[in-house]
Structures are given as C-alpha cells and as structure tokens.
Nucleic acid binder design. Structure first.
Length: 487
RNA sequence: GGGCCAUUAGCUCAGUUGGCAGAGCACCUGACUUUUAAUCAGGGUGUCCCAGGUUCGAAUCCUGGAUGGCUCACCA
C-alpha cells in the first residue's frame, strides 16, 4: 500500500486503519440514515428536545473527559455538539469513539438535549465510522490562511472556513435566481458550442485546442454572442446562455482565464431596454439573495436602488479628466491629447480608440456606481448599432459597480453590410498584429443576410458581481478552483 | 512579462548582530462522567521552498530558480 505518511500524524492514523480492519471495523463505510441536518436541531430544538435524531458529518473538535466526551460534528448546514458517555454506549464503543480523530466522518444517533451551559447537544447512544481521515486538518482557531493552499485545496478551505462556504452558497443562489428571473420574463435558456471555428463576439485572445478526427484546430469560446444572435435570426426572440467562457489573457484580482457570463438577447428591444433589464435583474436578484440593496464592498457602501444613473461616455471623461472629446475632431488631435496626458500610443490610433483608452485609464476605476456609461465609439464596438444622431458612436453601454465593469450591452448591429465593414476593419487590425481584434465570421454574416430583427443584447460578468455581493477582494475568492500553475 | 513582498513543524506564526531550530493549536503517553479554544502532568515530531556561493559557522548574507500574493502592463 502506498501511503504518503511524511508526517507522524498521518502515520498514526494509518496505523489506526490497520487496527480497525484487524478488529473487523470498516474504515470506509456505507451510507448512514440521517434524519436531520445539524441546523435543524438548532432551529427546531423546542420540538426536538428529548427526541431521537440521526446526523452525519465530520468531527471538528474533540474534548475527552475520561468516561465522557464532547465533540462537534459538522455537516453541510453547520455544526452540532455531541456528547457520549461510557455508561450509555458501553466500554467497547466508548473506547472506539475515543480513538476517532478530528477529521473523521461519522454518523451518530442520539437524544437531543441542552447541556448545563446551555448548548444544544446530541447525547449519543449509537454511532458508526463512515470515513476515516488520514490527514490532519488545519488548526481550529486560525483556520487555513495560506491563500495558495486555500485555492489549490479548496476542499480544506471549505471544511475549516465557514465563510468560504457561504460565498459559494450565495454564488449558487445568485445564479439560480438569475435563471428564475429570466424564465419569468419568457427568456429561453440555450446551449451553444463551446468550441468555435471562429472565436468571435469579443475583443480577446482565445485558447486553441485540436479535434483529432477532423484534424482541425478549434478555439474555446471567448463569448456566446454570435451564436445567440443566430438564434435571434432563427426566431427565438428571447434567449440567454449562462456559462463559462475562456480568454487567453493575464490573471489578476479581476480576471480568471475561465469565467462565467450570462448573455441575454431580446428581439424588438434596444439598449435602453437592456439598461432596464440589467438594473432590474441585478437589483431584484441581490434583494432576493442578500435581503438588501445596500451592499458593503471593501468598506464602502454600494446602493443598488433603482433607477441607476445613465451617463454619456464623453460626459464622464469630461467630468473626470476635463477633456472634451466632442470638440476634438480628428485622429491626430486625439492622439496629441493622449500624449499630453501621458498615455503611450503607437501613432496610428483612431479617435475612438483614444477615447476608450482615456476612459479605461482615467475613469473606470473611479465609477463606484452602479452607473450605466453609454454611447461608445464605433471603432471599439464592432457589433453595436451606430447612433442615429452621430454614426461615429454606437448604442452601447457598460455597467460599472465598485469601479469594475460588470456588464456590456448594445442595440445590436443587424445590418449585414455595415457588419461586414466592421469585421473588415477588425481584420485589418489583426493583420497589423492585434491578436485581440475580431476575426471575420462569414457564417454569422450569412445569418444576418437572412434578416435579424432589431435586438437588444446584454452580457453580464457573473463572477465580478458575485465578488461585489460577497465583499470579496479577488475573483479567485468566488471561483471554487481558480486557475493556478501546477506545483 | 516588469516591480515589490512572502515561503520555518500538520496548521497559525516567532526567530535579535551570522553562533545549539522555537511557541500556540494539532499530535503522542497518562489523569479526568456536562466541556466550550475543556483542564492537568509529561513528550518536539523539521528537506528552515530548491540549487549554488561567501564564511570557522547560514533559517539569517549573495546569485540563480520555483510557487504564491499585491501591483503595473494586457483584458472583462
């Protein structure tokens, strides 16, 4: 048997397993019939006092007092104290219980009572070892703090740090509530390919994989956008997809290579409708999951009460930097302004690109929000419809909360001729070396050529909103297994 | 990819000027029949992240590397 007992503690526990087997005790048992969760016993104590209950969970603490012992058992809902005494289970069983270790999973049956110090407790009269733990758990008082271990061995983090479990419960409820909200609004959840022959719908570098039988390189999707719009062409007037997307870029407290988005498309709608949908969806789901619209994020309040303000991108830049791009008329002048503000430029940027850079560098992280920033330059919005009053801009907005971009939406570009021109502009950038620029997607253009109804589209970054709702400083705190280099 | 910081017992952390490797919890031996971070008596269990170097002597100083965190760049 190959057991890594590099420490004495693992060695002792391994010896215990051998001893158990010798005594005919199964160290890895079958299921235990449970009647309650630990939480039930606390919340329904009045009705349960004196009754017999069965629970199963992991031993988290142990306090032996000679011929009686206390322990805490943790299940998915919390912890409950158990009490066992030799004169109620017999000497043999009692000695066996004493041999159990912190970390072992056991099932217990006993009577609910309250100790003299007032703690709700189960007085055990029978129990069974369900799973022997060979490795010692981190310390009970300080828990597991080493962030590397917390991410690499999230299961330990979940066992010993209850607040971590809570983050992921909120995450699950949040996602479930989004589904419920959209279903109620008649949106249909769909699943589109994760492997794409053209990676489109966003400005990002894709991961590449390979299909052996077809001898074909494929990209992992960087967005769900273009397939969902094909479905709008197909007459599915309200669709959404909630799922993982992949971008082959840097890792930071706000970026993980794989992350979760929900993209929502609604025919006969525009970006004004998407703003309403965004604020209603986020606010109602936050209210449901957290019970409040006033959120504390890293010591500062974020108020999600409706309506959220709408601001023009150009106005936001003017307010924060003093630069008025509405009076800057050509690319050269825009570049000069960028240089004057210390931005590094290559010399061939378009005005629209400079505007976006200005916004990202000087404004984004100062938008506590929630706020909708709207009307983005056409050069940086190749899938959005041009504004009627100014074709240099598009009906696109991004939503900011706590200085983070959490949503991106447009009145969709449905004109196949304009779309082709936009793709061609992107392809030029690709050829010039910009690996994030969009690829030409002929198949998508063909779909548009059949006619796509006027549509509003919206993408929401689930992880970032969950960061905010759970007051988490890093995206890795809301992803169960964040991307790590192998050790 | 750049900069800064971290890595010492299973976990959380000390470690002074370069001079025997430390504490708490956990663990081991024993006592204890309502404890609450149970208590009491005894026990240190270690590849000081790795590889070189300087030195009589390195956890400590130097060089290179690994992993992680923060940050900048890139992005959402």
């Amino acid at each position: 048997m190959s057991v890594d007992y590099h420490s004495d503690q693992i060695f002792y526990r391994y010896k215990k397993i051998e001893e158990l087997i010798k005594q005919g005790v199964e160290p890895y048992g079958e299921k235990y019939e449970v009647t309650h969760y630990s939480q039930d016993i606390h919340t329904k104590f009045t009705g349960l006092e004196g009754k017999t209950v069965s629970i199963a969970g992991r031993i988290m603490t142990k306090r032996g007092h000679g011929k009686a012992s206390f322990a805490h058992i943790q299940d998915s809902r919390g912890k409950i104290q158990v009490y066992i005494r030799q004169d109620s289970v017999g000497e043999e069983n009692y000695n066996f219980f004493q041999e159990l270790d912190i970390g072992d999973i056991i099932g217990v049956t006993g009577e609910v009572f309250k100790t003299r110090t007032g703690e709700i407790t189960i007085n055990i009269f029978s129990f069974r070892l369900l799973s022997k733990s060979l490795r010692p758990l981190p310390e009970k008082w300080h828990g597991l703090k080493d962030v590397e271990l917390r991410y690499r061995q999230r299961y330990i983090d979940l066992i010993v740090n209850p607040e971590v479990r809570n983050v992921f419960i909120i995450r699950s409820k949040f996602i479930q509530s989004i589904r419920e909200f959209l279903a109620k609004e008649d949106f249909l959840e769909v699943e589109t390919p994760v492997m794409h022959s053209v990676a489109g719908g966003a400005t990002a570098r894709p991961f590449i994989t390979h299909h052996n039988a077809l001898d074909l390189d494929l990209y992992l999707r960087i967005a769900t956008e273009l397939h969902l719009k094909r479905l709008i062409v197909g007459g599915m007037e309200r669709v959404f997809e909630l799922g993982r997307i992949f971008r082959n870029e840097g890792i930071s407290t706000n970026h993980n290579p794989e992350f979760t988005s929900v993209e929502i498309y609604q025919a006969n709608a525009d970006y004004e409708d998407m703003m309403k949908l965004t604020e209603e969806l986020v606010a109602s789901v936050a209210q449901k999951v957290l019970g409040t619209l006033k959120i504390d994020y890293q010591g500062r309040e974020l108020d999600l009460s409706l309506p959220w303000p709408r601001k023009d991108l150009i106005e936001v830049i003017k307010e924060i930097t003093g630069v008025d791009f509405s009076s800057i008329n050509d690319d050269a002048e825009a570049r000069k302004t960028a240089l004057a503000h210390g931005l590094e430029i290559e010399g061939n940027e378009k005005k629209g690109e400079i505007i976006l850079t200005f916004f990202e560098k000087f404004c984004e992280d100062r938008l506590w929000g929630p706020v909708f920033v709207k009307d983005y330059p056409v050069e940086v919005s190749p899938l959005a419809r041009r504004c009627r009053h100014n074709p240099q801009f598009t009906y696109r907005f991004e939503t900011f909360m706590a200085g983070k971009e959490v949503a991106n939406a447009f009145t969709e570009l449905i004109d196949p001729l304009d779309q082709r021109e936009r793709f061609e502009q992107q392809v030029k950038k690709r050829i010039a070396g910009n690996e994030e620029a969009h690829m030409m997607d002929e198949d998508f253009l063909t779909a548009l050529e059949y006619g796509m109804p006027p549509t509003g589209g919206l993408g929401i970054g689930i992880d970032r909103i969950i960061m905010i709702l759970t007051n988490s400083p890093s995206i890795r705190d809301v992803i169960l297994f964040p991307t790590m280099k192998p050790k």
